[in-house]
Measured scan of single mutants.
Amino acid sequence: MAAGGDHGSPDSYRSPLASRYASPEMCFVFSDRYKFRTWRQLWLWLAEAEQTLGLPITDEQIQEMKSNLENIDFKMAAEEEKRLRHDVMAHVHTFGHCCPKAAGIIHLGATSCYVGDNTDLIILRNALDLLLPKLARVISRLADFAKERASLPTLGFTHFQPAQLTTVGKRCCLWIQDLCMDLQNLKRVRDDLRFRGVKGTTGTQASFLQLFEGDDHKVEQLDKMVTEKAGFKRAFIITGQTYTRKVDIEVLSVLASLGASVHKICTDIRLLANLKEMEEPFEKQQIGSSAMPYKRNPMRSERCCSLARHLMTLVMDPLQTASVQWFERTLDDSANRRICLAEAFLTADTILNTLQNISEGLVVYPKVIERRIRQELPFMATENIIMAMVKAGGSRQDCHEKIRVLSQQAASVVKQEGGDNDLIERIQVDAYFSPIHSQLDHLLDPSSFTGRASQQVQRFLEEEVYPLLKPYESVMKVKAELCL
Rank of each mutant, 00 (worst) to 15 (best):
A2W: 07
G4K: 15
D6K: 13
H7G: 06
R14A: 14
S15F: 15
P16M: 13
S31L: 02
S31P: 00
D32C: 12
R33Y: 10
Y34K: 07
Y34G: 09
T38W: 04
W39L: 05
Q41F: 14
W45Y: 15
A47N: 05
Q51T: 06
L53W: 01
L55C: 12
I57N: 02
T58K: 08
I62P: 02
S67Q: 10
L69E: 08
N71R: 11
K75T: 14
K75I: 11
M76Q: 15
A78H: 09
A78S: 14
E79I: 11
E80Y: 09
E81Y: 01
L84Y: 10
L84R: 12
R85P: 00
H86S: 00
D87E: 13
D87G: 01
M89T: 02
V92C: 13
G96Y: 05
G96W: 02
A102R: 00
A102Y: 03
A103L: 11
I105N: 13
I105G: 08
A110G: 15
T111E: 00
T111V: 00
C113E: 08
Y114A: 00
Y114F: 10
D117W: 00
I122V: 09
I122K: 02
L124M: 11
R125V: 09
N126L: 06
L128A: 10
L128W: 03
D129S: 11
D129K: 14
L131G: 06
L132T: 14
L132R: 15
L132E: 12
P133G: 15
K134R: 09
A136D: 04
V138F: 15
L142F: 12
D144I: 15
F145R: 06
F145E: 11
K147S: 12
K147G: 11
K147R: 12
S151I: 09
S151F: 09
T154E: 06
T154D: 08
L155D: 04
L155N: 01
T158E: 00
H159D: 00
Q161V: 02
P162T: 05
P162E: 05
Q164D: 00
L165G: 00
T166V: 09
T166E: 00
V168E: 04
R171G: 00
R171C: 00
C172A: 09
C172S: 11
C173M: 03
W175K: 05
W175M: 04
W175S: 05
D178R: 02
L179T: 09
C180I: 15
M181L: 12
D182V: 02
Q184W: 10
L186Y: 05
R190M: 13
D191H: 09
F195G: 07
G197N: 00
V198D: 01
T201W: 02
G203Y: 00
S207W: 05
L209W: 12
F212T: 07
E213Q: 14
D216Q: 10
D216P: 09
Q221S: 11
L222I: 07
K224Y: 14
M225V: 09
E228D: 11
E228L: 10
K229V: 05
K229E: 05
K233F: 11
K233N: 10
A235I: 09
T239M: 05
G240E: 02
G240K: 02
T242S: 08
T244P: 15
V247A: 14
D248I: 04
D248A: 01
D248P: 03
I249M: 08
V251F: 10
L252H: 11
S253Y: 09
S253L: 11
L255Q: 08
L255N: 06
S257P: 05
A260M: 06
A260Y: 03
S261L: 02
S261F: 00
I265W: 11
C266Q: 11
L272R: 01
L272Y: 08
L272M: 10
A273L: 07
N274K: 07
L275H: 10
M278W: 08
M278R: 02
M278A: 07
E279N: 00
K284E: 09
G288H: 05
S289R: 00
A291P: 04
Y294N: 04
K295D: 00
R296I: 08
M299P: 10
M299S: 14
M299E: 01
E302M: 06
R303Q: 05
R303M: 04
S306T: 01
L307Y: 01
L311A: 06
L311Q: 08
M312S: 04
T313I: 10
M316C: 09
P318V: 08
P318I: 02
P318T: 08
T321N: 11
T321W: 04
Q325S: 15
W326N: 05
R329F: 06
L331D: 01
D333Y: 03
R337G: 02
A342G: 13
T350I: 15
N353S: 14
N357I: 08
I358F: 08
K367V: 03
V368H: 04
E370T: 11
R372W: 05
R372L: 02
R374Q: 05
E376V: 05
P378C: 06
F379H: 08
F379M: 13
T382R: 02
T382H: 02
I386D: 01
M389L: 08
V390A: 10
K391W: 06
G393E: 07
G394T: 08
Q397V: 07
Q397K: 07
E401K: 14
K402C: 01
I403E: 06
I403R: 01
S407A: 10
Q408P: 04
Q408F: 09
Q408L: 10
V413L: 09
V413Y: 13
V413S: 13
Q416S: 11
G418Q: 03
G418H: 01
D422A: 06
I424F: 10
E425M: 10
D430R: 06
D430W: 07
A431W: 09
Y432M: 08
P435H: 08
I436S: 05
Q439I: 11
D441L: 13
H442N: 15
H442R: 11
L443S: 04
F449Y: 15
F449Q: 05
T450L: 06
R452M: 12
S454K: 15
S454Y: 13
Q456P: 02
Q456F: 04
F460M: 08
E463Y: 11
E463Q: 12
V465S: 03
Y466E: 13
P467D: 09
P467Q: 09
L468A: 13
V475T: 14
K479I: 13
L484G: 13
